[in-house]
Design a binder for these strands. Sequence first.
RNA 1: GCGCCCGUAGCUCAGCUGGAUAGAGCACGAGACUUCUAAUCUUGAGGCCGCAGGUUCGACUCCUGCCGGGCGCGCCA
Length: 577
Amino acid sequence: MTLYARFAAHLDAALDALVLDGELPAGVDRAGVAVEPPRDASHGDLATNAAMVLAKRAGTNPRALAGLIGPKLEALAEVQAAEIAGPGFINLRLAPHVWREELGAILTAGSDYGRSRAGHGVRVNVEYVSANPTGPMHMGHCRGAVVGDALASLLEYAGHQVTREYYVNDAGGQVDVLARSAHLRYVEALTGTEAVIPEGLYPGEYLKPVGASLAADYGDRFVDAPESEWLVPFRQAAVAAMMAMIRTDLALLGIHHDVFSSEAEVQAAGKPDAAVAALAAKGLIYEGELERPKSLDPHDEWEPVTLTLFKSTQFGDDQDRPVKKSDGSWTYFGADMAYHYQKAQAADQLIDIWGADHAGTVKRIKAAVAALTDGATPFDVKLVQMVQLLRGGEPVKMSKRSGNFVTLADVVEEVGKDVVRFTMLTRKAEAQMDFDFAKVVEASKDNPVFYVQYAHARIRSMQRKAAAEVADMPERADLSLLDAEELELIQLAAQFPRIVEAAASAREPHRIAFYLGDVAAAFHAQYNKGNDDPEKRFLVAHRPDLTRARLELAAAIGQIVRNGLGIMGVAAAEEMA
RNA sequence: GCGCCCGUAGCUCAGCUGGAUAGAGCACGAGACUUCUAAUCUUGAGGCCGCAGGUUCGACUCCUGCCGGGCGCGCCA
């Protein structure tokens, strides 16, 4: 049980006691009552809004109610003082031994400190990356990949059962384009003359090995053959090669999905038919025409066509959406909706991580999931904004036409996995972000990646040196030697479990990064006090007992940093380069 | 025209799902330090939280309407 849960229980007991005493009516709804650290540390260690929330329901006023609750809490051994403040807050100042015990709890729990069962084992499917299998991962995919992966870890840490899933879009027109592009490289491999890649096909060099491999497999039999003979095998081979490359790229970031689902297989298994039948049974499918798109110029031509439509407007969409094209094949949406239906059968909740450029299609897929599951499966789409790549403040030039984009592999090679992952989590997902190659590797306190890593490395450094610098340290630490300033670090560290829970329920992994920045800053500040006053150093040669206690404190801070970085998928630095 | 996201210190951004006097870094002002505990430290100033209403004990946070910026809006994927 976390410290916060414990005090919530204390508060409940105090309220129960007031009911028994006849001071408080029985059966008052306690929803909304919280025990939290106050924003302003001068207000104490913990504060509760109980009196303000319950006063009206109990037919009294906040300060009067606080006057009843306060003394009950003050009577606890763990509480040094309970003060009523402001409109009716009850501020608690905890006994120092509470923080000393929490320090021990951090070290005892180790890598599990902060792990919780708040998620109750709920099965959550997180779908992320799902980049089209037409080329290597580039930086456009990177942020969604990191955010999705960190979110999955965060949810796991908070007690959910998580499936990490990748949807392979191997059924649309762009994989045919891929197959044709591979065919050109195939001919190139056989003839040895540089292929000319026409506009609209994929020009990237990464298809050369695919062409060579196809040449080795098939010889020259498809050089002049009609497309209908080679399109399917070339497509399969090319997609497989692209997926292998994408998996390799993802592995560079430490990302490994549990499930790869193929759009082609979803279609081949008849899933879209089943989904449409299910919707039709609810009266949500009809034959109709789409309105003329608003984005068209007035003089552009528009021919209305009768299509199979899903009544997504009944679930908040702006217009009904086609599930089939006029040629009878499935639209992307038709298959995607069936795919989400499939995911919903093996999970209690669904989360998709999408790039912001797909924002316009959120409503239709949410409508489809709501319709197919009768609203029983919570479904979130998290939109991740684009990343602008900079180098020393100057935008990095990229040209999609020439296939000259910055690949994820290039970036990881240049700055490292940990820097990429941490940096991608230093903004909330829906805020735009700059990624400056120069700044993310800067060794200064302006760079949160560095500052957090440095804190951990410093702790490791002092642990390595401790025995050599301070002789005769006692076996057991006497934590009562720690002063109030030092215990404040533990107060901050003790917030980790609730940060994890809040971040998980808000589905915002960036909160972990910001919290670690706070922890690092607080640690560095404490450490820096040793510059002015040698007695405040962590390692004090003539005070083995004090050193021992401070090492315990440092170890706890290091543990928090490691646990937080672990959720983010970032390795903690043992030393700075 | 419609939809989504954003609007917080000069700049870049947090703000713990509605709490108390809205925070941090950079930049700016003033001090300190000259270092093998290094990749600085302390401190100060800086705000109509885009605007206007509403909800309530209480709003940066929730609702409505405006203003400003970005993105998106055929049967593409």
